[in-house]
Write a protein that binds this DNA or RNA. Structure first.
Lengths: 155, 155
DNA sequence: CCTCTTTTGACCTTCTTTGACTATAATTAT
DNA sequence: ATAATTATAGTCAAAGAAGGTCAAAAGAGG
């Protein structure tokens, strides 16, 4: 793969899978050493690839016996999961976060890849042709409506 | 041969063929060096010879480990039909006409019922929260973008 | 000549990597 | 108990590594 951050991302996701698909607990320094990078790179990876929008929760503790725990958000109940996403969207959402949400929905098999592309296209910056902050508001509105539709058509 | 852009075009198409005829991933700077031209020439080549209309999709990423990926898309039989729809949409479209278009796409099996619902949700009056005539303009923009991804993301 | 296409380069934006400095928790020494 | 030390993790900004944009200059064709 292309770069260290991507590699570490994959590694962590594998760890989650291997441990039952829900959670993983790591030592920051340990992973950093394994991949021969600075510890703070782990923070970067987490901040860009394991956000709420991506469907993860991260907890950590400093000091002796410290750790970083990454938990995958429960998606067994599609209803709750989608309600959760709607909450994250709120009244406004950036394109970056929107993409993360869509990615998460795809990974959780709520939508297909084609649906993901359609949704992303609908909320792209260029498509929405508006200035901030209206653009983020509109994007949120569109996404919330789409999620509603997905909720309906599941039943 | 005639000029650098044509040569690079041929080279890239050859690369796609050699790798199974579907996709190629390059480093812009690397190709530029190979042909002893400025990196931005690659952008020119891509913009003039690997467009959607030519049957290609281009994705890219900046920063460390960056790349440009060119994917060849089978131009399926629906191409003309969708181009026609885009023309109909033009710079503005009412909700009613939008719904008709979406319905038509569904009936022509260009999209699934769920995709139809998603698209309709995205362009609803309520969702778009704008006054006329901006609303119709925005709706047109969204629909045109969506048709593009439908056209060029097939299979 | 005039127009269209190609070539170039300066400047911009985005993403990643790195490291110095900070914050917090546990352990050990006083 | 309290203080000092050690072990972790977090933050933030600078440096580095790509790719993107745009318009001027150069070239090709009619």
């Amino acid at each position: 793969m292309r770069n260290m951050s991507d590699i570490i991302e994959q590694y962590l996701k594998q760890l989650i899978q291997d441990s039952g698909g829900e959670v993983v607990e790591i030592k920051r320094a340990h992973i950093a050493e394994k991949f021969d990078c600075v510890p703070s790179q782990l923070n970067y990876v987490i901040k860009t690839r394991f956000t709420n929008e991506h469907g993860y929760t991260v907890e950590s503790k400093r000091g002796g016996g410290g750790y970083i725990r990454i938990t995958k958000v429960e998606t067994h109940s599609k209803t709750e999961y989608l309600a959760h996403l709607k909450k994250l969207i709120g009244d406004g959402v950036s394109e970056q976060n929107a993409n993360r949400l869509v990615q998460s929905m795809f990974e959780n098999e709520v939508i297909t890849i084609k649906e993901a592309k359609i949704i992303n296209a609908a909320v792209e910056r260029e498509t929405l042709m508006l200035e901030l902050p209206f653009r983020d508001t509109l994007r949120a509105s569109i996404l919330r409506r789409i999620i509603d539709v997905i909720l309906y058509s599941e039943e």
